[in-house]
Simulated assay, not measured.
Amino acid sequence: MPKRPTFKKSSLKTFSFFLFFSAVIWVLVQFSKTYTQVIEIPVIYENIPLDKSLSEERPDHVDLQMQDNAFNIFYYKVFNPVLSIDLSQATETPNNLVYILENHLSQIEEQLKINFEKSRIIQDEILIPFQYKKEKVVEVIPRIEVNYAVGFSAENPVQLEPDSVKVSGPQAVIDSIESVYTRELSLRKVNSNIEGSVELDTTGLGMLSFYTNSVNYSQKVEKFTEGSAEISVEVINVPAGLNLAYFPKTVVVYYQVNLQLFDEVDTSDFRVICDYEKVKQGEDYMIAQVEEKPDFITNVRLNERRIQFVIKR
């Protein structure tokens, strides 16, 4: 029986090395050759005019014809660069924004890191269809939580400047919006006047363009003190002929007031009422509420809101 041929391990390693080396040389030779290839370069649009909405059918790429070695072409295919188109540099026709690529070759070269001696963009210009947006002024609603230090408060709520902003966008979206909120802001242990800037919360409103993206807020904060006044309870809407007895006859009204205005508070400025018509069947109490009070006091509360009553026969 003839012997099977055998190979030494050293010979197999040598053969494998030369095979691998030859393959590498072949790849390098092939990749060093010059090829012509068309590559799609994605585009994004910047500085879109606020009064215009770009059509969904707008071009999403330009075609770059490269005449280069395979290494560079492979790089552009794998690490596909993005071309930013500045629409503030486009011209306008009745239905399109026109961006002429030849007028911006140096900017494009810098962005894409290419040499136009070996490459060229096939398109001469980009036509971007648009529609005019509808404009509207909407109210800005603050979401600013102010927690005052002990003994401090404010007579007026937080003020915004401006308190409304102009927005533009597709008519269907514009018609559905009446206001926009600020981003949430929390201020703690406030003991002096506050002011600053807060951004608008445009979450979910990406179809709209805001002419102002932030507003200023302010509030006058002053030293406050707590006061109290004992006020008689007045019952209204009692049916004629009904003999009603109730208790307590008076309640204490607690309030906060600017320290400088403390002496101007008069008990005659308060009125506390119970409306008998609001009593539900089977109940033996009425709910007291502050009907009148000085305009400059805040945080008004009662020591007792349930007023018990009985009907005398």
Rank of each mutant, 00 (worst) to 15 (best):
K118R: 09
K118H: 02
R120Q: 01
I121K: 03
I122Q: 05
I122A: 00
Q123A: 04
Q123F: 06
Q123E: 14
D124M: 07
D124E: 05
E125D: 03
I126G: 02
I128Y: 10
P129T: 15
F130P: 03
Q131L: 10
Y132C: 02
K133R: 15
K133V: 13
K134L: 04
K134Y: 09
E135Q: 08
E135M: 06
K136Q: 02
K136E: 01
K136P: 00
V137M: 01
V138Y: 00
V138S: 00
E139C: 00
V140C: 01
I144G: 09
I144R: 03
I144N: 06
E145G: 03
E145T: 14
Y148I: 06
Y148W: 09
Y148V: 04
A149H: 13
V150K: 11
G151H: 06
G151Q: 10
F152N: 07
S153F: 14
S153K: 07
S153V: 09
A154I: 04
E155R: 04
E155C: 04
P157L: 05
P157G: 07
P157E: 08
V158W: 06
V158S: 07
E161V: 09
E161R: 04
V165I: 12
V165T: 04
K166R: 12
K166C: 04
V167W: 03
V167T: 03
V167R: 01
S168M: 05
G169P: 12
G169I: 09
G169W: 11
P170S: 14
P170H: 12
P170A: 11
Q171T: 14
Q171F: 14
I174L: 14
D175L: 09
D175N: 15
S176H: 04
I177M: 10
I177S: 09
I177Y: 12
I177D: 13
I177F: 10
V180Q: 03
Y181S: 11
Y181C: 08
Y181N: 15
T182R: 00
T182A: 09
R183V: 14
R183A: 15
E184T: 12
E184M: 10
L185T: 09
L185H: 11
L185M: 14
L185I: 10
S186G: 05
S186E: 13
S186T: 15
L187R: 02
